[in-house]
Design a protein around this nucleic acid. Structure first.
Length: 395
DNA sequence: CTCTCACA
DNA sequence: TGTGAGAGG
């Protein structure tokens, strides 16, 4: 998995591509979020005594908890989230690719377990391994979002790819994900650490793909080849090839075709490719993912007022949440989604003048504006009255 | 994971 | 104002 490696390469070779800032800087922006990935992490992280949270009937509530509060926090910051759910698993062209993909998926869960080996947390270990995002989890989160007035859409296959399409089309500002692989799907901007700013001290990262390519001096194809070489979700990495070598190989040979050629003809046999390594098929998945175009009516979305009573019914009555918390959450949601109707205003955060003189000047200005507005209203009224008195019929 | 509340 | 422990369902 090249997540760390890819980031370190970018940091090294294209530092301008990474912009760090506070969450406030994202005010008014729309972002696309991979819902299924989020749900998975909630199921793992939202726990108490090693168990997922559950209501009295034993139904899991971790995913709803996580999604409810995280979304609230995002919305509190004036950000408008759009969730994208995974559809069917991608149809992989080669059988080998499919095999590896499946194994990787299973390994992801096994890895969590392996990491825990040696610690005394047997219970946790066991329950983590069995975590799967089910149809029911997805459906419940969709119901929750609907009640919250937060839009979502279901991707034909992979959510990440769909997020990238929306960002590329300008329907959202960025794809928000922790997964660097999202860049391979051609999102112009990747937003990382969207949620844990403020509370933690880490800043939000914007990673700009154009700057990445510029800094690496590569086109998109070479960049994707680089990522595949580092080990993407669909293919195993090449043994002994780390970030440094991967970069060097791409720079010297220009493409995976040439690199494979080189490795196979290299008499010294420094590197060995995995037995079956259908890199071209993996590359296709990044270049021709199964997605809806941004113009598809199914990609239309809007933010609406929350259904407060519906939320209470679902979360409180059915799932045992605290009514007070749900209601106060719903109120926050109502307030924020209303006020963020207006789009991003540059200069919105210009500080109010500080000295007394400046404050007075500022006040005067406001009064002037007020006066002007009043006058205008009066005039408008007059116009209207005139129009009424002299109803139009002439034309 | 996120919230809350107690405590420096 | 900030941090840590503990609850949440």
């Amino acid at each position: 998995m090249g997540i760390k490696q890819l980031f370190s390469i970018i940091k090294e070779e294209a530092p301008d591509a990474i912009k760090e800032g506070e969450i406030k800087a994202q005010f008014g922006r729309k972002v696309a979020i991979d819902a299924s990935m989020s749900i998975y992490s909630f199921l793992i992280a939202v726990r108490s005594d090693g168990q997922q949270l559950m209501n009295e009937s034993g139904e899991t509530t971790s995913h709803l908890m996580g999604m409810f509060y995280r979304t609230l926090r995002i919305v509190d910051n004036g950000i408008k989230p759009l969730y994208v759910f995974d559809g069917a698993p991608p149809k992989l062209k080669s059988g080998e690719l499919a095999r590896r993909y499946q194994r990787k998926q299973e390994a992801t869960e096994g890895l969590e377990e392996a990491k825990e080996t040696g610690t005394a947390e047997d219970v946790e270990k066991f329950s983590r391994r069995t975590v799967r995002v089910t149809k029911e989890h997805n459906a419940e989160c969709q119901r929750l979002l609907k009640l919250m007035g937060v839009p979502y859409l279901i991707a034909p296959t992979e959510a990440e790819a769909q997020c990238a399409v929306l960002a590329r089309a300008g329907k959202v500002y960025a794809a928000a994900s922790e997964d660097m692989d999202t860049l391979c799907f051609n999102t112009p901007i990747l937003l990382r650490h969207l949620t844990f700013s403020e509370q933690r001290k880490e800043p939000i990262q914007e990673i700009h793909l154009d700057k990445v390519l510029e800094g690496l001096n590569m086109d998109r194809k070479q960049f994707v080849d680089l990522c595949i070489l580092l080990g993407c979700d669909y293919l195993d990495p090449v043994p002994k090839v780390g970030p440094h070598t991967a970069l060097k190989l791409i720079r010297e040979h220009g493409s995976l075709e040439k690199i494979v050629e080189f490795i196979e003809s290299d008499k010294k046999g420094k590197y060995t490719l995995p037995d079956d390594w259908p890199f071209a098929d993996a590359r296709d998945l990044f270049f021709q993912p199964d997605v809806r175009t941004a113009e598809d009516p199914l990609c239309d979305f809007k933010w609406e007022k929350p259904d407060i009573e519906g939320l209470v019914q679902f979360l409180v009555t059915e799932k045992g949440f605290s009514e007070e918390r749900v209601r106060s959450g719903a109120t926050r949601l109502e307030k924020n989604l209303k006020s963020s109707q207006q789009s991003r205003l540059e200069g919105f955060f210009k500080p109010v003048p500080k000295t007394e003189a400046e404050q007075k000047a500022h006040k005067r200005k406001l009064e002037e504006k007020n006066e002007e507005a009043k006058k205008k209203r009066k005039e408008d009224k007059k116009e209207k009255a005139k129009a009424k008195a002299k109803p139009r019929g002439a034309n």
